[in-house]
Amino acid sequence: MNIFRLTGDLSHLAAIIILLLKIWKTRSCAGISGKSQILFAIVFTTRYLDLLSSFISLYNTSMKVIYIGCAYATVYLIYMKFRATYDGNHDSFRVEFLVVPVGGLAVLINHDFSFLEILWTFSIYLESVAILPQLFMISKTGEAETITTHYLFCLGLYRALYIVNWIWRYYFEAFFDLIAIVAGVVQTILYCDFFYLYVTKVLKGKKLSLPA
């Protein structure tokens, strides 16, 4: 474990908690893409199946349980408890265009053609594009609540910090996983225009609004 990965995990945890609290406190999921949240729930489920088979550390296990629990709680709040506030019209990204190619790629390019390894690879590839429905929804509505932008910033920052963690591990542990690195770079690149808007607008106290 290194400071970059720890900060990354905490940033990821913060994002998940911010979103859950935002929906719970405001009793509304306006502006939130339910599809992205479903994709994240799938990412965690397919990645953390080893919860049952291998124990790495208390930290590792507890974070996985928290991530999975919060992901499903968020999906439940969006599609069940506060479904009246779910903006389905603007959450119209065709996720099948993500899941099918990612599934095919996971079968073709992986470290080991085994069930758990292919699921892990699928979850890595899926995570890199899972935010697209959310970014697409913001481009359709033309704006995002400030709390949602903080959620997205923490979410984007987490994988950016993981890239630094991978550089660190390459030099100090001679460890690298090309699949995770390539997917992580793609994932972080997808946030770039959001990062620009966040820094130039939200951090200056303005509302994030896109030229619709």
């Binding site: 990965r5 080893d50 470290h111 080991d112």
Partner: peptide, 10 residues
Amino acid sequence: DSDIKQKDEL
């Protein structure tokens, strides 16, 4: 393919 290292990252 690389030997299956223990996946210790989240």
